[in-house]
Design a protein around this nucleic acid. Sequence first.
DNA 1: AGGACAAAAAATGAATGCAAAATAGCCGGT
DNA 2: ACCGGCTATTTTGCATTCATTTTTTGTCCT
Lengths: 245, 245
Amino acid sequence: MKSTIPDTGVPITPPAGNGGDRQEASLHGEILLRLRDYVVEGNIAEGARVPERQLCEMLGISRTPLREALKVLAAEGLIELLPNRGARVRQLSQRDLEELFDVMAGLESLAGRLACEAITDAEITAIEQLHYEMYGHYLHRDMHGYFQTNQRIHESIVAAARNETLKTAYANFAGRIRRVRYSANFARKRQRWAEAMREHEAILDALRRRAGSELSDILFQHLRNKRTAAIEHLTEPQEDAPASP
Amino acid sequence: MKSTIPDTGVPITPPAGNGGDRQEASLHGEILLRLRDYVVEGNIAEGARVPERQLCEMLGISRTPLREALKVLAAEGLIELLPNRGARVRQLSQRDLEELFDVMAGLESLAGRLACEAITDAEITAIEQLHYEMYGHYLHRDMHGYFQTNQRIHESIVAAARNETLKTAYANFAGRIRRVRYSANFARKRQRWAEAMREHEAILDALRRRAGSELSDILFQHLRNKRTAAIEHLTEPQEDAPASP
DNA sequence: AGGACAAAAAATGAATGCAAAATAGCCGGT
DNA sequence: ACCGGCTATTTTGCATTCATTTTTTGTCCT
């Protein structure tokens, strides 16, 4: 017996096979996006309850679409649903962070490997451009600019991998730790910063040579080092950090 | 003192920080699990509509929890939600499959790398055991047994990585292509089969030596080859394959 | 007869309502 | 006065209901 559900045929209309989907339309998707941002940006304390009713009036909707969005956010790992006790903002233990960093490292490592197969010279040039820009930020001790450019470089590599599924997954995991990235500006240590710059040069070098395995290794190690710095920073938040300008 | 600040307090109660969550309790979670299996096992044709009302009576529930589950499934990438036109089983293009295989390859590659850091001798022995078992299936031309054991080996590697987040993500992506794995038994070609066995031996070797980078490379290539075989099989489904019983 | 238009039917998306569980507030016991 | 049990209120989870949109069907016109 094949289909328990009979006629549902209509095998036609495969409209768009995007990697992981974002439903931009349909109000519910709107709610989802807004709520995700709201949580990711840290508007609710870690481990705190997500007040349904309050959010409902804040967003001007009823509980149904909100709860649907909450379910999705829970599936994404941003919040957790306690049976009969509502939603709470996911509290990331140190172990969780380590795991997330490692998965991100794995995904970027993969992205690098794939990028070597398909990246164009123009894309490499663009990344080199970003690299120099970032170097400028480094010289000027511009943490914020450095961070942003750094992120753009990594995103460029992911984009060069030509894999929407990977890109979506990457964005998902990035969202989970963004809150931490906001609160904790690791890589504040001068030494780590210099190291990171050297690693980035090695990344560019491997990319130019389209050395997939090698780039994969370098990227993993690079992210691993980032992870170590981040965890250290969270464990003992007082470093050599001076106030920003 | 009571809580001047209404809810956001209660920083206590970090019950369980599991990697990606499965809400086993709460009926809604039940529905989610059952629906996921229902879709993954291919009970609905690709691209076909997911009939809400029918599923409702089939599961004996109202539309609300069902729709919540559908939203989650859509976020997982198993189905897609067309605005005002209901849910459809996600139709995977060849490109989608390639992307998924590559991401799986990346995750397993990562798993191997991490496993080398933490795997115990006992675990390696267990995997060796599975390897010999699989070799037996290979000699007896037992495709089904081979496949199952093969999957257990890969799952063991993922488990040895000690990363619940990775494990969850891996399971998610595996679910997306399971339907294809069911319908298409690639690796039917004798030659590819023999190759796979050799690759598996290399995997074991690298694992024994805890050679992380190397294992990472081997695993990626192994999965890449699988991908090629699978895509070829899907493109021209008539190989040396005899009809199944 | 074929196609286009329109109305009916069905399905989707969201809001509201209702039972059960949890939280809090309250009272009595020691 | 403090702790434990009991009741009231809030909150959650699901069902039901309502408004739109889509899809289908029937009819009419060319």
